Amino acid sequence: MKTQVHLFSGFLGTGKTTAIRSLIEQKPESEQWLIIVNEFGEIGIDGAVLSDNGIPVAEISGGCLCCTAGAQMGDTVKKMLKQNQPHRMLIEASGLAHAAGVIDELKAPEFQDKLDIAAVFTVVDPRQFIDPNYANHALYKDQICVCDVLLASKIDLCTPEQLAQFRVQAAQLFPPKSLIVEVENSQVKLEWLNTPTTEKSRYRIKTLPENTMGYQSQGFTFPAGRNFDGEKITNFFNELPKLAQDLVRAKGVFQVLDTWVWLNWVDGQWGANQVSWRRDSRFELIAKSFDTDEIERRLNDALEKK
């Protein structure tokens, strides 16, 4: 029996991790799943968040999954398949990954008898989808092109006019998508995993520029046992837009009052959820430019004094 592989693609902050978490909550007890998470930076945040449920999770950190991490992904897939016999494998690509390259890696001859490329999901913010600055970018086009299921998240933040424009443009995509759905908070229905795949003449776009749209990332870790002050870490997240130029994403897992919380900043807002991660506190941001030393100083200031 081949393992069904589902790729979750989408730009930074659209809700890929939340989408996978919603599926994990619905996982049939009779099925074994594996999860692979790729991060743009070196510090794995999403893997920590997804490691709550006893499902094996592997992290691939550092760059575009299909470029610098391509060989690492193949090795990771082989290792996980050797250790497990999963029904499904869910792969969360970095928000800056060229999704076509990920598909190419999974279609390698060594995996032909082991993997079946099932429904590919791309999570989009309709406000970005209708914005030519995003829609005309090769990386964004690539993520839209490869998917079978186009998942429009954050519809509660869209105006009726924006949603209407999204529906028109999404319906005109070629080849047509097998499923186009609009959801709040990236909630995915389990049956959508069985969406038929769409025949595509090619996966990889003609030119695949290995750029990251000018973004850079930085990660920080702090040993378990050191609590962060809840008020100070809240203030830190509130002040982040002033500390980083063109901040597009910030997320972290922090020990606060001996509990562990996932803080996630996107679109000028941040939210918090409790997680079972206990290994260390970690933080990562993605922006055009920032003062790494100042960010580190602010984080250290947010630690409770010994």
Rank of each mutant, 00 (worst) to 15 (best):
E231L: 00
K232R: 01
W192M: 07
T234M: 08
N185H: 15
E191T: 10
F222P: 00
F222V: 09
E184R: 12
E239S: 05
N194T: 10
N211M: 09
Q218H: 15
S186I: 12
T221H: 04
T195Q: 01
I180Y: 05
V256N: 07
P241N: 03
F228C: 03
T207W: 15
K200I: 11
F254D: 06
I180V: 12
L173T: 02
G252E: 09
N194Q: 12
L179N: 09
E239V: 13
I233R: 07
W192F: 04
S201F: 08
L240D: 09
G252T: 02
K242W: 09
L193V: 07
V181K: 02
G252W: 04
E210C: 15
D258P: 03
D246W: 04
S186Y: 02
K206A: 15
R204D: 13
V253N: 00
F236N: 04
L240V: 14
P175C: 07
N194I: 08
Q245S: 10
F220H: 00
Q172K: 10
M213H: 15
R204C: 14
R202S: 11
V183A: 03
S217I: 11
A171I: 05
L190V: 13
I180P: 03
L190Q: 08
E199M: 12
F222K: 05
I180C: 08
N194S: 11
V188P: 03
I233Y: 01
A171W: 13
A224Q: 09
I205H: 13
F174Y: 14
I205Y: 04
G230L: 01
G219R: 02
E184W: 10
P176G: 11
S186N: 04
E182M: 08
F222C: 05
N194R: 08
I180N: 05
V253Y: 01
F237D: 09
L243A: 09
W192Q: 01
N194A: 13
E210L: 13
K242M: 14
N194G: 11
T197V: 05
N235P: 02
R249K: 11
V183C: 00
T198Q: 07
V188K: 06
E184H: 14
R202L: 07
D229R: 06
F222R: 00
E184T: 13
V256G: 01
R204A: 14
R204H: 03
K177I: 05
F237G: 02
P175Q: 02
L257N: 13
N238H: 06
Q255N: 05
E184F: 04
G219H: 05
K206D: 15
F254L: 06
L179G: 03
P175L: 05
K232L: 06
A170Y: 04
R204L: 12
A170T: 05
E231Y: 09
K242T: 13
K200G: 07
L173M: 10
R226L: 14
F236S: 03
V253G: 00
S217P: 10
G214A: 12
A171E: 10
N235D: 11
G214Q: 11
S186Q: 02
Y203C: 12
